[in-house]
Design a protein around this nucleic acid. Structure first.
Lengths: 186, 186
DNA sequence: GGCAAAAGTCAACAGCTGTTGGCATATGCT
DNA sequence: AGCATATGCCAACAGCTGTTGACTTTTGCC
């Protein structure tokens, strides 16, 4: 409790940054606009976070660790993953920040790969499937494609789809990507 | 053949614009850099295209019409769509331009919706499936998610996947989105 | 060759950007 | 109380952006 005041404005800056980055992407979100949202001077942002890049890194920072899905049978892992990611996306806007900026920002791309590939692949490896990297990639394509249309591009039927229906459609897709034998290699 | 010289530089500008927009997105691609690539003066870009927005609109302009898939049985339409979109993506970089910029540019978003929803939905409607909008949306999530990882975020196993394997994995997914009966509505 | 129009060049503008240093104010300790 | 320190604000910088207008060169027609 050494410094309480500064912590509050630090948090205000971070919250404003997340919102702006998530809504407008990296380039359009200006330090001035973020500072205005947080009702402080732009210079404060620099004092606390050093640079725009570092502020962004802080805004996109969050716990990426997947829970341990080791004891879940492979046949129902698809459904579990859909529910988990959906809850993740809707909990806060860190992932939206990441997706919106990953398209132009290299740091964001790498963190995205980290989450979807580096995190998912070991989980699958624990289930002893073959070519886990490919399967993790396939799962990522479906999950991220869904998130893109639902949260960024906002296609009406996808935006309004209730969680249960999302699971109904996407669950079996993921399950297939996890269980279907790989095509024979040449 | 009234003005040949100008047509050539017009085309050079457009080509450079497509490359820059596709590689860096709307904001990072500057008129000055595009002009430099085309080896002309930035003022020429303005003379020929009026503004950056209009140049972008021209760069993202292309024929979005899907061929007539009316006589293809619904069961194999998934596979056909995968092959068609894959060929489309790889033919030129208009779609990459669109995807990279759709995340921050409203014009690009609308054109994206136009392609994937407005174009795909009538095609499905012709096959007399129920809730064509939802099905078109689901197909879009899988296709665009795949494109995102393959062409923008560049996840290794997805980038290197040969076309036949893409069809093997994604084809049945789309087919299911097109043929599976909708969940009962509450 | 002479000349109008097209094509291209140059320099500058106004506005916005991230970033910096100096200065005022409030805070908290002794 | 007094004072060091943390917190905040202001004004300005250098650089880049899209865009503009005046100027020069080239082209094509009579």
């Amino acid at each position: 409790m050494a410094e309480k005041k500064s912590d509050r404005t630090r948090a205000a800056i971070l919250a404003a940054a997340r919102e702006r980055f998530g809504a407008e992407g990296y380039e359009r979100a200006t330090i001035r606009s973020i500072a205005a949202d947080a009702a402080i001077d732009p210079a404060m942002v620099m004092r606390y976070y050093g640079s725009k890049e570092k502020l962004f890194a802080a805004a996109a920072e969050f716990d990426v660790r997947l829970p341990d899905f080791g004891d879940i049978p492979l046949e129902s892992l698809g459904e579990v993953l859909v529910r988990h990611f959906l809850a993740r996306w809707e909990a806060d806007d860190s992932l939206r920040v990441l997706l919106r900026t990953a398209v132009t920002n290299e740091v964001a791309v790498q963190r995205m790969r980290e989450i979807f590939a580096a995190q998912l692949e070991p989980t699958l490896r624990r289930h002893a499937v073959d070519s886990p990297a490919v399967r993790a990639g396939l799962v990522s394509t479906q999950m991220l494609g869904f998130a893109l249309w639902r949260y960024i591009l906002e296609l009406p039927p996808i935006v309004t789809m209730p969680a249960d229906e999302v699971v109904f459609w996407l669950g079996p897709t993921l399950t297939r990507y996890l269980t279907e034998p790989s095509p024979s290699q040449v």
